[in-house]
Design a protein around this nucleic acid. Structure first.
Lengths: 174, 174
DNA sequence: TATATTTGTCTTCCATGGAAGCTAATGCGC
DNA sequence: GCGCATTAGCTTCCATGGAAGACAAATATA
């Protein structure tokens, strides 16, 4: 135990629970609580970069999904919804905003008259190319708070946990 | 490189970017992308438990903040807002819902007529005690997807990154 | 003490997203 | 080819939270 380190927020919460509910083991919060806290803080930092381009997180995600599919930077709304993990209703609204901003266009699909095709415009392409470059530079700075070894270890652990969480056949321990 | 492992979502996104933007190093996404994905998946799992008690995440957080302060389980709305990291406006609405559900009461403070005091009711206390026990059991199961050593290493890395992120004097590398 | 500033909570308005249902187009089974 | 289930996108309604301002009470200042 490091006595010179002030307790962080999560450690203080754990201390409260130890006093109030000594019957409950709150040690998992040490990992899960900090993971959420860290995710939240990182999101804040990332959103600052999106804001420089007048984008919010959702809009940035949609533009990325269109850009990384490659020429001619087109995708159906349903695909975009799946890639960015929102409902199609939410996607309709995001596309509305991006269309209004002139960053994407929306047209009917030729082979399926129900379907639409969302495409990056020239300005949309330019904007996301610049924003993405900036975004990755930002992520790099944030990640550089860890040593290369720390970062590598962390990535491996996150990948492991994630894969076990998705994996149907469950736990390894206890 | 593990060739038998199918690429996960983040790895596929990185592969797309390598093709489309070979000029940009997207390796930070390996950590940051997976961290966010994992946080999202864990939140889903946690919310399932909250749902069993007819609570959403915000309400659960407020009840926890009241419970872990100890007897008589009272706190000012502003304090609750600070602890749960939302604005006081959002807190007003959360308290409205919890009050309507009979889980908390709201009264005027004696020494400061502007202030209110939110207190757990008996049923609120019972509910959160049970929900929290269940919640920690759930977190334990999720964490048991990692070995004890993995969990310990992960906690240390998250704590390190978080503290460096909050720390005013910045980076260690590059 | 009278006035100004600050503080704590609440209110209003807006942004965003989910759930569920609507509409039109597709395509399957007969 | 005709009906019926399915599909894609959109619309409507609702839940939640932030931003900013209103309001009343407390505190500081003259």
């Amino acid at each position: 135990m490091e006595h010179r380190q002030p307790l962080d927020r999560v450690a203080r919460i754990q201390a409260d629970w130890r006093r109030e509910r000594p019957d409950v083991d709150t040690s998992p919060q040490g990992v899960i609580g900090r993971l959420h806290r860290l995710a939240g803080r990182l999101t804040e930092e990332l959103c600052r970069v999106y804001g420089r381009y007048d984008l919010n997180e959702g809009e940035f995600d949609v533009l990325c999904a269109l850009r990384r599919v490659g020429e001619p930077y087109e995708r159906a709304p349903g695909e975009l919804a799946a890639h960015t993990m929102v409902t199609t209703g939410a996607m309709t609204k995001r596309i509305d905003r991006l269309e209004r901003a002139g960053l994407v266009t929306r047209r009917r699909s030729d082979d399926d008259q129900r379907g639409r095709i969302v495409a990056l415009t020239g300005p949309g392409r330019e904007l996301i190319d610049q924003a993405f470059t900036d975004h990755m530079r930002n992520e790099r700075h944030l990640l550089n708070l860890l040593t290369p070894v720390e970062a590598e270890t962390l990535e491996a652990l996150l990948t492991t946990w994630l894969s076990r969480l998705e994996d149907p056949r469950p736990p390894r321990h206890e």
